[in-house]
Structure formats: C-alpha cells, structure tokens
Measured scan of single mutants.
Amino acid sequence: MSRVPSPPPPAEMSSGPVAESWCYTQIKVVKFSYMWTINNFSFCREEMGEVIKSSTFSSGANDKLKWCLRVNPKGLDEESKDYLSLYLLLVSCPKSEVRAKFKFSILNAKGEETKAMESQRAYRFVQGKDWGFKKFIRRDFLLDEANGLLPDDKLTLFCEVSVVQDSVNISGQNTMNMVKVPECRLADELGGLWENSRFTDCCLCVAGQEFQAHKAILAARSPVFSAMFEHEMEESKKNRVEINDVEPEVFKEMMCFIYTGKAPNLDKMADDLLAAADKYALERLKVMCEDALCSNLSVENAAEILILADLHSADQLKTQAVDFINYHASDVLETSGWKSMVVSHPHLVAEAYRSLASAQCPFLGPPRKRLKQS
C-alpha cells in the first residue's frame, strides 16, 4: 500500500486566492494483479454453464480479502454459449462490502496482453458476489490457432484489481511565511564533478583513453575500487588504474551511474553493462540491467540471455529466462542460440529441462510459493 502523499503547497495549487485553511483528501486504492494459466484448455468440458475456478489470491499475505477468477468455457447461458465468460469473485471478506475495479486480458504466445476488457467503474462486491463479462471473447476466435491465444493449448488470463480503501483527510492552515525547501541536487552536482573533471585525484585508463576521477567517490560506490585504493596496490601508489576489459562507451555509462545513480543509455548496452556491474560489484546497476534484459526477452535471444545471466550470477534474470524458455519451449528449441547452448553450456540445458519437467508435473513435489530491489 502506498504512503499517503503530503498535500501540495497551496501557493502551487492555483494562481488564484489562497485560503486560510485547507483539506486534502486521499482515497486510498490498493492495486494488484494475478495470472492464471489453464493447461490443455481444449479438453475443458463443453457443457453450457460449466465452471472452472482459479485458486484464491489477494494483494498480499496480510490481506484478508480473498478473490478468485471464474471461467465458463462455453458461456454462462444460452445467450453467451458462443463466448467464454469471465468473472472476478470475492471469496471471503471481513467487511460487509468492498468496491473494486478490474481489468481482464489474455496473454498471447509472446506474453503480450490482448483482448483487454475492464470495468468502467468500481463495482460493489459482497462475499460470494462476482462481476465480469458474460461475453468476454468469442470461442471461435479464441480457438483459432492463427490468433495465437492458446500457445501449446494453454489459456493464460491476466487480471488487474484495484480495491478502494478508506479515504484519509489531511488538513492544515496557511501561513504568510511559507518556506520552500529546494530539491536535493546531489546527483546532478556529483555528475558535474565527473563531467568537468574537477578536483580529480586519479586516472582511469580504458582502451587508450584516459578519464579523470575521484578516488573517494569510486571507493564509496564500488567495493572493488575501494579494495584497489585501500591496500598497497599499484593503483593506490600511482593513482592510476588500467581497465582492459570494458569498452570506453560502456565504461562511461558505468561511471555515470557511479556518480549519479542513473544510467540513461542502459537499454542500448544492458548486456555489456551487466558484465561491468558484476565485475565492479555495483549491485543496483546489475539489477537494473537484469530488468532491462528481462523486458527484451524473446524467442530468438532467450538462450543467449540465459548464458549471460549464468555467467554473471544474475539470479533474477536467470529465473526469468528459464521461465520464458519453459513457456515458449517449442519455439526456443528451434533457435540457433539454443542449439549452440546445447554444445557450449549443457548444464544450462539440463537446468531448463528440470524446470520444465517440474512445471508440467506438479505432483512430483509440493507447490512452490512464489514470493528486491534495493
């Protein structure tokens, strides 16, 4: 649940008159999402009104509101027999009622949201009550392989729920002597030191190019640089560091992050930047690179990204790559990247197969709970 924001200063709310007192009302909304995959969808019983329910879910471990999704594969009634019906059901509720908006969509073979439908307002739910769409999607369109909505005969539904909580009022009075504290510009100011090479005390040599930097900042941000300058190493004695395995453009992006906490060109060089972040123990930059690479996972590059993640101990990226390969196994196994990995990294192939087997055979063990970014 997000923290209630402070109200904007009255002088910034309007260029008009300023009242002596004010009130700011925040209506709290808890948002969460749920993904439900139905394997072997074409084998569902086709009687009209037949119901399939998901397991229950909530916004978190401490949330007492429990929900589930309900599907009628062949419609709810005679009117909707040519459609799939989809509903959000409130299973248990400690209150007399709650209000919530919802959005349903289908994830296609690429994991993209399609055929989205959402409620136009927050509906009133009581325990045992459901709301949804009797005519969510035509069955003939859903079952047509050309539309790519049932890869490997799996129907994957994605649901986003927004639950309306209580409202909170914050009130106060205006004073004539309003003090406005300026925003912190530390990142910009440190970035200026790097860009202008002011007050530098060490030189970093990268592929024949020299960059002036500040030992204190490098040591504070990177345990690797800290070790170089702290001990009686040649880098500490000469205040000069030779860097041979990072390209200059990648190095500059890494230094921008060290000084400012930002990497504006990360998406263009996420793979190389991940390697640099791993070498210099820049954990936050490493996770930022993992996130960017996750966003660009595809059938063509899944094997290469899995190898990269394994090489640099990028655990979150590795998990996402394995899950992606499992979901698109029939396509990924035909790529040149996968065939190369079979020869060069057989242990990763074995890991992917083990994960695929456990996903398809849940009876082999208890269900695993899916539970950071600093």
Score class of each variant (00 low, 15 high):
S96Y: 14
A270S: 04
K238F: 03
L186D: 05
K154G: 15
H345D: 09
L88D: 00
A275M: 02
S236C: 02
F225P: 00
E235D: 06
Q316H: 06
L311V: 04
Q26E: 05
N169W: 02
D245H: 03
R198D: 09
S54E: 04
M288F: 08
D77H: 09
D315N: 05
Y34K: 13
V349M: 07
G128V: 10
G172A: 06
E97M: 10
G261F: 12
F133M: 07
M13N: 03
E78D: 07
S105H: 11
F158N: 07
R45G: 02
S42E: 07
N40R: 12
G337I: 09
S58P: 08
D144I: 03
F104A: 01
L348Q: 03
V342L: 08
K64M: 11
V164R: 11
M228E: 13
L69M: 07
L142Q: 03
L86M: 09
G111F: 14
A122G: 11
V179N: 06
G148A: 01
K101Y: 14
V241T: 08
K318T: 11
F136E: 01
A321P: 00
N177A: 07
Y353S: 00
D323V: 05
T25Y: 14
Y24E: 07
V51R: 03
T200H: 15
R221Y: 15
K28T: 10
A213I: 13
G208D: 07
Q373H: 10
R139M: 10
D310M: 12
K101V: 09
L282H: 06
W36H: 13
S344T: 07
E112K: 13
E97Q: 10
F363G: 11
Y87I: 08
G60M: 08
I38L: 05
I106W: 15
F141D: 09
L150Y: 07
S330M: 12
G261W: 05
T335G: 03
S92I: 05
L274H: 02
V30Q: 11
N72A: 03
G132Q: 00
F136I: 07
R198Y: 15
M1H: 00
P367R: 14
E351W: 07
L204M: 13
E230S: 11
M269R: 05
L311W: 05
K135N: 13
L348A: 10
E232W: 14
P73Y: 03
A263G: 05
D152L: 14
K372W: 12
R354Y: 07
K154T: 12
G337V: 07
G132V: 02
A109N: 15
E79D: 14
F225W: 15
R99P: 09
E12F: 13
L107T: 14
T25H: 05
T156G: 02
A302L: 01
D188V: 07
V168M: 08
C23V: 07
